[in-house]
Design a protein around this nucleic acid. Structure first.
Lengths: 223, 223
DNA sequence: TAGATTGTTAATCGATTAACAATC
DNA sequence: TAGATTGTTAATCGATTAACAATC
């Protein structure tokens, strides 16, 4: 019947972004639990306590991994970890390039933790001849002119943008023309890209505003 | 009458966090407009077009600054800028300390843009004797042992945490004991603080997950 | 067994979007 | 004046939270 069409297996249910953002938090927590190694199962109640999230929200969030728990026992830790990895596709690592090997760029290059989340930054680019040809924490720095060729040859889809603000748009243009489909933008400049290209803007000013408003309210309530 | 009590001037209406996060985006945009200097007024329609936000949402967001626009004309740019500054308290600058003068810490120290958003990082701390006593982009590096005294003497309320993950919790404890009330946490470790202290966790893994899911969906829809 | 915890269905809450009279 | 744009009130949408039977 027509009204049952959307019940079929292929219908893609949209994943709420807030839940998506919480998954890596659970993941890191579960990894720690597993390393401690003193329990095989964990309840949503316990996770919620430790992470300051309501248990019902924990259950809802974990539901999207399609891992099922057992009443009374909770969830099997190893299953949950595997479930999150599978859902987020962390088994097959995605390669990325970074452009702008300044302090922030170097910090990101040096932080190998993203590999755990399926992202491998394989090289960096800069226009500073002094940096070109050197390595930062094991990653080669190439001249920005080499980017288009290398993106095409290696089929790179993700670019990390850590250049000074005035260069942000022009470097983004180079990325897009080369075939980059997703830009992780760490500059505080809004960049324009054609449709079919994603920009994830890491907006520190927004976070700062939230922090200082919360602090202000906190301090106000004290006097 | 009792039922009118919550209508009084003093009742604090909660500010939706999503709207709060968008304010700095409008602010940066308006500053650029002002510098170009070719218009005195701007409509929500125009802002929405340029920023890819629905005009009605722009109006709702700007409403919280209590700046009123004029039908047909729009909002006066200079009033909006002032309105956002006032609402977010950017006139009186807040001082902050940063702990952990590695690459990421240095990047944040070197980025003077936060002063525009009311935050002034006045010094940094580290436990590396080689760094102590030196300056990074004009900011002195002190030994971490000096932190408690200086926090108390200067009445610092905000601490920025950019130490390696294993030190995150213990440094946070030092901050809290010293009197820090808000911690901007750039490590990927969840830290525990007593009530009355705020933690703003800058979770890059969450952003990365959103970016890669969106990219995956984009690429899937192409074949 | 009794009690804790699950998955599921329903209720609530808050943010986004729509509708529209007022107006420069 | 006519039309674009405002502020405000109402409708929609989606995420969070509550309720509860099923169950190890």
């Amino acid at each position: 019947m027509a009204y049952e069409e959307n019940k079929n297996e292929l219908s893609i249910k949209p994943i709420p972004e807030p839940a998506l953002r919480r998954l890596p938090v659970y993941y890191q927590y579960l990894k720690t639990l597993k390393n401690q190694g003193d329990t095989e199962f964990i309840s949503a109640t316990q996770i919620g306590n430790d992470l300051n999230i309501l248990p019902i929200q924990v259950r809802k969030d974990l539901e999207i991994t399609e891992i099922i728990g057992r009443p009374k026992l909770g969830y099997k830790i190893s299953e949950l970890i595997k479930g999150i990895e599978d859902f987020l596709g962390w088994n097959n690592i995605t390669d990325a390039f970074l452009v702008g090997a300044g302090n922030l760029g170097s910090a990101i290059l040096g932080y190998n933790g993203f590999r755990e989340y399926g992202l491998n930054i394989i090289a960096a680019f800069d226009n500073d001849e002094k940096k070109v040809g050197t390595e930062i924490t094991g990653k080669m720095i190439f001249h920005i002119d080499k980017l288009p060729d290398m993106v095409k040859r290696m089929g790179i889809k993700i670019g990390i943008l850590t250049v000074p603000a005035p260069y942000a748009q022009s470097v983004a243009d180079i990325m897009v023309n080369a075939g980059i489909r997703a830009i992780w933008n760490f500059t505080h400049v809004k960049i324009n890209v054609p449709s079919g290209v994603i920009v994830q803007h890491e907006n520190l000013a927004s976070s700062l505003v939230v922090l200082s408003k919360r602090l202000k309210i906190l301090l106000q309530n004290e006097d």
